[in-house]
Amino acid sequence: MNRNIARAVAAVVAAVAVALPAFAGAYPLQVARNVMMYMALAITWDMLLRSGQISFGIAGLFGLGAYAAILGVVRGGMPVWLSIPFAAVVAAAAAFLLGFLILRLRAMYFSIVTLALAEMFRIVIHNLHDFTGGPEGIVMPAGVIFGGNAAALYWLTLAGLAVALAASWWFEKSRIRFALTAIGNNEISASSSGVNIFRWLLVAFTVTSGIQGLLGGIYVQSYGFATPDGVFSADFTLLPLAMALLGGMHGTVGPVLGAVLLGLVSEWLKLKIPYGHLIVYGIIIIIVILFMPAGILGLARKMSRGAEGGKS
């Protein structure tokens, strides 16, 4: 019963999301694109978090994907449409190889090294002037994909979000859920149950990084240029993280909820305080961690359980 309602709601939301360009103007579509982009990143961040690993490196893989896409076209002569999956492959491959090193790390060491990696990618791109265009960035000679058609750009981002949602759903419905949950709870007892910890972390890290790269590719083709400071901006780490925290971690619904709320608030704040609108993210992170570590979803669950308990 409950599940049917949920399905119906999901179907309606999906239909509205697909049809949005029919009745929304350019500005709402732009806002929706931003929200969906961060939502997808928030979902991928949460997917890895289910194993207990906190990555601060979202911006790194996002930016890597962005540069892979644009360089694939400009330097590699790749067709524009192909550059987007190519971005995913490059980011996934980088994560796979780096995974052999950094997935040995845990807790703060893992987090800080992912943060450092993001910086490192930025510096490398920054310094390889001749190939990447250096600090000034690089422009797509053919301009924005789809000639900048607002509806098409919207659908492209929606497709990126769909990939993230599908992957997250797969993580929840397959044995990966059991592997990551067991690892996140206690690695020692997980390994006693036959879980190959490194292997499943590598799967999760590679898949989530690949999607982050894909989103970077979509982003860069939607704007037609990339600069190191732009695509490696800390925003791409900070916003998704805050969104997933606010909505509630360890599932698909939390990050989606958080992204809608925070995404809309931040669009509004951007207009109100152009300098420093990011402060809400800082404050939301602090408040959520201190007062509602399970996010809005966790709070809702607790309240509904409280109501149930009160009845019986």
Binding site: I54, F56, A107, M108, S111, L238, L241, A242, L245, G276, H277, L278, I279, Y281, G282, I283, I284, I285, I286, I289, L290, P293
Partner: peptide
């Protein structure tokens, strides 16, 4: 949680 908390504090101070 502590890691994320101090991360949030860092953002708040900067902003």
């Amino acid at each position: 949680n502590q890691l994320i908390l101090t991360f949030g504090i860092a953002i708040a101070l900067t902003q």
